[in-house]
Design a protein around this nucleic acid. Structure first.
Length: 459
DNA sequence: TGTATATTCTG
DNA sequence: AGAATATAC
C-alpha cells in the first residue's frame, strides 16, 4: 500500500502530494491510506494556539469521510513530539507492506528535521518517499535577484513575482480520481477533538471556497480592509495557514473574477506578501531560530512585567490597542490594521522585544503561521524587511480616529468606554477614565515616540 | 501600510 | 483658524 501523509495541506483539491499519491496508487493498483499525526506537546512548544489545534482536529475529522468517498482510508495517530513520529512509521511498517509515502515539503526547521528522520527510516526499509512542493503561487526560492539571493524589499520582489507567475501560471489541481483499489475500512487510531463551536470559522474546504467566492471583490477590499469595525477582509487566513485552501486557488478565483488586472489588485498583493515571508524563511533559517532578519538591528529591549501584562490583557489605556488585544483573546483573531498598531505599540513605543508579541500572537491566533507572523513582527519592530526605516511609528490615537472614526470597534471590545462620545473615545480624559474604570495610559505617547527615535537612531 | 511640524494657502 | 503641502525623522 501507499501512504499520503497529511500535515499542513488539509484539503483534497489542489493538493499536489495527494494527487500524486492517488495517481501512483492507481498505477500500482494498490490501496492508499491517509495518515495524520498530531503532536500535542510539539504544538505547545511551538506555541500553537489551542483554538488552532482544535480547528485542525475538526478539519481532519471533516476530511476523513471525504477521503473515504475516493476510497482512501484514514489513520489518525497522536504522539507527544516530532521525535516520536518515526516510531509511528515503524509500527506501520510492522503491520503493513508499505511501498511509497507521499507528503508535501515544509520549510520550517523542526519540521524538516522530523521529515528527514522519517525519510531516513523509510529508506532503510526500501520505501520510496516522494516529497512534493506545496501549492504555493511560486515554489520558495524561485524568485532571486539578478545578482543571486533573496530580495529584501517587497516591491521589486513582487514585480518579478508577477512577471514570473504570468509566464509559468499553473491552474489549481482538481479533485483527484477515486482510488480504484478497494476501501480498506476503518483503521485503528487516536481520537480527535471535534467539538467545534465557532460559527465564524466553519470547517472544511468547501466552506473556505465559498468564502473565497463571496469575498473576491477588489474594489471593496481596497476601500474597506483598513477599518476594523467592518468585515472588509477575506477572513481566509486560518484556511490558508492550514492549507484548507491554497494560495493558488485564491489567485485563480481572483483571475476568474477580475482577469489579468487581478495581478495588480490589493488583495493579490497581500497573497504575494505571504509568499514573500515564506520565501524569507526558506532562504534564511536563522529566522526560525528567533534571530532578527537585519543582523545589525538593535536587539536589546526593555522589559517590564507590568507593561507586558497590560499589553497582553488589553489594559494599556490606549482604547484601540486594548480593543485589539481583547479581540485576540476573545476571538482568536485580530483585524490586520490593529495587528500593526498593537505590534508597533509594544515594540516601537514600549521598546519591548518583538519576540514577546510574536509568541503571544502565535499562542492565540487561529490563523497563526510562523512565516507571516514572524515577518509581520519583524517588519513592525524595524528588525525585518521594511523599505521604510525605523521611524514609521504609529500614533495609536490618530490611527484610531482615522480607522475607527465612530469608535464602533472600540465599543465592541472595550465596553467600559461605550458611553463616551465619538470624539472622546479614542483618548478619554482623566476624569472619564476614572468614571469608566479604565486605566490611564501606561506610556506617555509623545515622550515614548521621542525616546524610540533616539533609541533606534543610536542603534 | 507613518507622524510631527513648519509653511503656505484659503476664507 | 483650519486645510493643504512639504520635509525631516
Amino acid at each position: 500500500m501507499h501512504i499520503i501523509w497529511f500535515r499542513d495541506d488539509l484539503r483534497l483539491t489542489d493538493n499536489p502530494a495527494l494527487t500524486a499519491a492517488v495517481n501512483q496508487a492507481n498505477q500500482d493498483n494498490c490501496p492508499l491510506i491517509a495518515l495524520f499525526i498530531r503532536c500535542p506537546e510539539q504544538d505547545e512548544k511551538h506555541h500553537r494556539a489551542p483554538a488552532q489545534a482544535d480547528f485542525i482536529d475538526a478539519n481532519i475529522a471533516d476530511l476523513i469521510p471525504r477521503l473515504q468517498k475516493i476510497n482512501i482510508s484514514s489513520m489518525v495517530k497522536s504522539v507527544p513530539l516530532f521525535d516520536h513520529v518515526p516510531a509511528v512509521f515503524e509500527s506501520l511498517l510492522d503491520m503493513h507492506a508499505i511501498k511509497k509515502v507521499f507528503f508535501s515539503r515544509n520549510y520550517l526547521l523542526n519540521e524538516q528535521k522530523r521529515d528527514q528522520a522519517v525519510i531516513e527510516l523509510l529508506q532503510q526499509h526500501q520505501v520510496t518517499v516522494q516529497v512534493k512542493e506545496p501549492a504555493y503561487l511560486l515554489s520558495p526560492k524561485s524568485i532571486e535577484k539578478n545578482s543571486g539571493g533573496m530580495y529584501h524589499v517587497f516591491t521589486p520582489y513582487k514585480k518579478q513575482f508577477i512577471q514570473q507567475i504570468k509566464n509559468s501560471y499553473e491552474s489549481p489541481l482538481t479533485m483527484p480520481d477515486q482510488v480504484k483499489n478497494e476501501f480498506l475500512g476503518e483503521l485503528p487510531g487516536d481520537s480527535l477533538c471535534v467539538d467545534w463551536q465557532h460559527p465564524w470559522w466553519p470547517i472544511g474546504e468547501s466552506a473556505a471556497r465559498q468564502r473565497l467566492c463571496q469575498f473576491v471583490d477588489n474594489q471593496r477590499y481596497h476601500k474597506l480592509r483598513d477599518y476594523p469595525a467592518i468585515s472588509g477582509t477575506s477572513k481566509l487566513s486560518p484556511y490558508l495557514a492550514l492549507g484548507i485552501i491554497s494560495a493558488r486557488q485564491c489567485l485563480a478565483q481572483a483571475l476568474k473574477q477580475q482577469g489579468e488586472s487581478a495581478f495588480e489588485s490589493t488583495w493579490v498583493s497581500e497573497l504575494i506578501w505571504r509568499e514573500f515571508y515564506h520565501d524569507l524563511v526558506a532562504f534564511y533559517p536563522r529566522l526560525v531560530k528567533h534571530k532578527t532578519f537585519k543582523t545589525d538591528a538593535m536587539d536589546d529591549w526593555h522589559y517590564d512585567e507590568a507593561i507586558v501584562k497590560a499589553w497582553k490583557t488589553g489594559h494599556t489605556g490606549f482604547p484601540i490597542i486594548d480593543a485589539g488585544m481583547r479581540q485576540l483573546k476573545q476571538e482568536h483573531w485580530m483585524h490586520n490594521r490593529v495587528r500593526m498598531l498593537t505590534a508597533s505599540f509594544l515594540t516601537k513605543l514600549c521598546l519591548h522585544d518583538w519576540r514577546i508579541g510574536e509568541q503571544h500572537f502565535m499562542a492565540h491566533l487561529i490563523d497563526g503561521d510562523f512565516a507571516s507572523n514572524n515577518g509581520g513582527w519583524q517588519w513592525s519592530s524595524a528588525t525585518g524587511c521594511d523599505a521604510a526605516p525605523y521611524f514609521r511609528i504609529f500614533n495609536p490615537t490618530t490611527q484610531s480616529q482615522k480607522f475607527d472614526e465612530q469608535g464602533e470597534y472600540i465599543r465592541q471590545y472595550v465596553p467600559e468606554l461605550k458611553e463616551l462620545s465619538n470624539k472622546e473615545i479614542h483618548n478619554p480624559g482623566e476624569q472619564q477614565r476614572r468614571d469608566c474604570d479604565y486605566p490611564a495610559p501606561i506610556i506617555d505617547y509623545k515622550q515614548a515616540r521621542a525616546q524610540a527615535l533616539d533609541w533606534f537612531k543610536s542603534g
